[in-house]
Amino acid sequence: MSTIILLLITGLGLGALYFLVASGLSLIYGLMGVLNFAHGSFLTLGAFAGWELSRRMGGESWGTLIASMLLGMVVGAAVAAATEFLLIRRLYNRHIEQVLVTVGLALATVALFEGIWGTDPIYVTAPPWLSQTTEILGARVPNDRFLMIGAAVLVLLGIVAFLRYTRFGLIIRAGVENRSMVTALGIDVRKAFTVVFAIGGAAAGLGGVLASHYFGYVSPQLGGSLLIFAFIVTVIGGLGSLAGAAIASVVVAILQQFANYFWGGTGDLMVVLLLAVVLLVRPTGILGKKA
């Protein structure tokens, strides 16, 4: 029983990370039709920014942790918005070329990060509480899981509120459904593009800082390895659906944990298998629009 609880909560923690990456991917795809390969780099950069801050301020304090999370968000948002503004926008509506540009950016930035920070993992320090455990129904759950889950829930609520209560949110929701009709109402939908990139980048940057605590280190490959699972999550959840991304994040991560524990480390393969099954049964994903 305690094992199940531990796996569930750890799965939720990992799912939280997936969601932080997948939410942005899904929003960006939903509105713009762009598959953003550079999203992993936003995450990695956020993680490195957080680490640079924490090694200067002393990583053991809560203040540092919170400051590094905020910094990760700001850095992620800024870089993402710049990416949209400088690269993606020039290729308006040329989806394949937009993907290619983000591929180039992903390759170039990972190499750049390796040049700056080296290829080896850099271990991070955190407030001691995070590496302790809390007992829940007999399971000794590492505390950092709660941080992941809490942060992802806040981000989910934040994005939902933004979409629901702001004019940009209204434009984004409408644009995901029918972008050309939004322009036909006199709205310059490109401004919303920068906004979704910034939101996605902020979530990814925060995800980067949190991932560095979940795994215990930062490395230039951090974003890329999470990105692939985030892609799978977005396809399973349904491209363009935030709720789908949230559900699929949790399902995928928990499946992964259970398979790793009970079926001899087959978690990653089970996830791909799940993807295959979803495609067979429902090619548009759990909550995806009809093609």
Partner: peptide, 11 residues
């Protein structure tokens, strides 16, 4: 970093 140069060239 060769990949940096190639990536940039590609973009």
């Amino acid at each position: 970093e060769p990949l940096f140069i190639l990536g940039t060239l590609f973009i």
